[in-house]
């Protein structure tokens, strides 16, 4: 990930290196991710039981419509979707249905919102709405940090 050649003669390369680094960081943070995806509708049945959701991980795409049938197979549970702040309560034997459009991308946990036993706060599933830009951008930043740091150290030595 080195973005500059260590030219040990003048101060200019350092300057150019900084500008290059800044541009690279901005690119990683801001360049839009092209998507060519036609929205579709998912019919998903989520079963809640102590202390898990099944399925425990869902992957869809931005713009998709999600029709959820929420059921419980033991005690009263809840369903709270981080980021979307959708909340439902489900009693055993009486399923709940709701629909939402996945307009925000990223990973969102869904968690139980009705105290249902010792592990209740950790009754968690995850919904990934693609394209999951945040994790790629953050990973890109991490890689650039390593590259820039090592390149900087190399340059400091050669100047």
């Amino acid at each position: 990930m080195s973005q500059q050649d260590p030219t040990p003669t003048s101060r200019r390369p350092i300057h150019a290196g900084r500008v290059g680094l800044l541009l690279l960081v901005l690119a990683v943070l801001l360049v839009p991710v092209p998507t060519s995806h036609t929205p579709r509708t998912h019919h998903i049945t989520i079963d809640a039981s102590q202390f898990e959701y099944s399925p425990s991980r869902l992957a869809i795409n931005q713009g998709d419509t999600v029709h959820v049938t929420l059921a419980s197979s033991d005690v009263v549970h809840g369903f709270f979707l981080d980021g979307y702040e959708i909340e439902h309560r489900v009693e055993p034997g009486i399923s709940q249905e709701f629909t939402f459009v996945a307009d925000r991308t990223g990973k969102f946990h869904y968690r139980c919102s009705v105290t249902c036993g010792p592990l209740h706060p950790f009754m968690i599933g995850e919904l990934v709405v693609g394209p999951n830009e945040l994790v790629w951008r953050a990973s890109g930043l991490a890689i650039i940090a390593v590259g820039a740091m090592l390149a900087g150290a190399r340059q400091r030595r050669s100047v």
């Binding site: 981080d82 980021g83 702040e85 990223g106 990973k107 994790v135 953050a138 991490a142 940090a145």
Partner: peptide, 23 residues
């Protein structure tokens, strides 16, 4: 839950800063 929508951004920023200081 408070800030559930912002949480991933907060966590990403914390982790990348941690890496930076470790490096």
């Amino acid at each position: 839950p408070y800030l559930s929508g912002a949480m991933p951004f907060i966590q990403a920023a914390i982790l990348v800063s941690g890496l930076f200081f470790s490096l």
